[in-house]
């Protein structure tokens, strides 16, 4: 499917600034008309519904841009049925804003190659709805430890050491809400983890037009297959919460018993927004992700070795000469 503007016939897309469908051609708002392919021979994964050009979507691609006509296509079978997301967090950061964030973050990196932040390159940035499972979990934890407090004082020629022994006991019932696990193999887990946190207050029920203008994937693995990531995280977090609750000024704490159970678990399949910028330099790909809701940036600036050496040499020479003169004058 794709969405066509009723006024001008152009491809209407979701506009993060206005928070609604806006036609980039005529400015029409919420003027979308859903176009779906018909006929027995039609396969939305093989030809572009708009121009008929052949397309080759990845194994999980659910929304993409046709290279030939530039229309944003949504593959019906990957957003319906078992692949129908229950929630979607719409983009709030527009492409212009995302470019600005990247530019401001790296413009002072003098070692980056000159075209790294050129508008021409930044224009290649794409918005992606990344498939996520958001897990709700009830976690029970129990913890026991022996602790000591030591006090020392001196009286006359004698040093006294007083050791008090305590027993610590904790039972925790914690409710975890919407622990996110990205369900796309393409997106690196560590980068996606750094995209957090999202503000879930903006989550809304999934509707197809919101995908228009962006790339997207359906989940690559099932929620059961990915649950271990959420559970590991909940266990670690619960353990930390318990340890943080020990506030007495103990000299030593020796854990004796710890057990953390996931009592119950449920999940929702959701799409979360991420801007992606890929920059290629000296046969290496540098990928940048910007949280499409909060604007948080993850990525590492490329470095030009020539620039590093040139700048370092300049600095070296400046200090050397100045130091020489100063020491000579002193």
């Amino acid at each position: 499917m794709f969405f066509r503007c009723k006024n001008c016939g152009g491809n209407i897309v979701y506009n993060p600034d206005k928070g609604m469908m806006v036609c980039p051609h005529c400015g029409g708002e919420e003027t979308q008309d859903k176009k779906t392919g018909e006929g027995e021979n039609y396969n939305s994964l093989e030809t572009c519904l708009n121009c008929g050009a052949p397309i080759k979507p990845g194994p999980f691609t659910s929304a993409e841009r046709c290279e030939y006509c530039g229309h944003y296509l949504i593959h019906d079978e990957r957003v319906t049925g078992k692949y129908k997301p229950s929630e979607l967090l719409p983009f709030r950061i527009s492409k212009e804003k995302a470019k600005e964030i990247l530019y401001n973050a790296f413009r002072k990196k003098v070692f980056a190659p000159s075209d790294f932040l050129s508008n021409q390159m930044l224009e290649k940035m794409e918005g992606m709805y990344v498939p996520y499972f958001l897990y709700d979990m009830n976690v029970n934890g129990e913890f026991e430890a022996n602790a000591t407090k030591t006090r020392r004082w001196i009286s006359g020629d004698i040093e006294y050491t007083e050791t008090s022994i305590f027993r610590i006991h904790r039972k925790l019932a914690a409710k975890f809400n919407r622990v996110p696990v990205d369900a796309s193999d393409v997106m690196p887990d560590d980068s996606m983890d750094l995209m957090e946190p999202y503000d879930y207050a903006d989550l809304k029920d999934f509707r197809e037009p919101d995908l228009s203008g962006f790339y997207s994937e359906c989940y690559n693995k099932t929620s059961d297959e990915l649950a271990y990531r959420a559970e590991t995280r909940a266990r670690n977090d619960a353990s930390k919460i318990i340890r943080n609750s020990i506030t007495g000024a103990y000299t030593t704490i020796t854990p004796m018993y710890e057990n953390i159970d996931i009592a119950s678990r449920s999940d929702k399949y959701s799409l979360l927004p991420v801007w992606q910028y890929i920059y290629s330099y000296k046969n290496k790909l540098y990928t940048y992700y910007i949280n499409g809701q909060t604007g948080k940036l993850v990525g590492e600036a490329p470095r030009s070795m020539g620039k590093i050496l040139g700048y370092a040499a300049t600095l070296w020479a400046l200090i050397f000469v100045t130091f020489m003169v100063v020491m000579h004058a002193a």
Partner: peptide
Amino acid sequence: GINFEVMYDQFISKAISQRR
């Protein structure tokens, strides 16, 4: 989301040693 059903630090014993 955080509810501690049990939360106590119990004092067990005390010992004093001395050194010249």
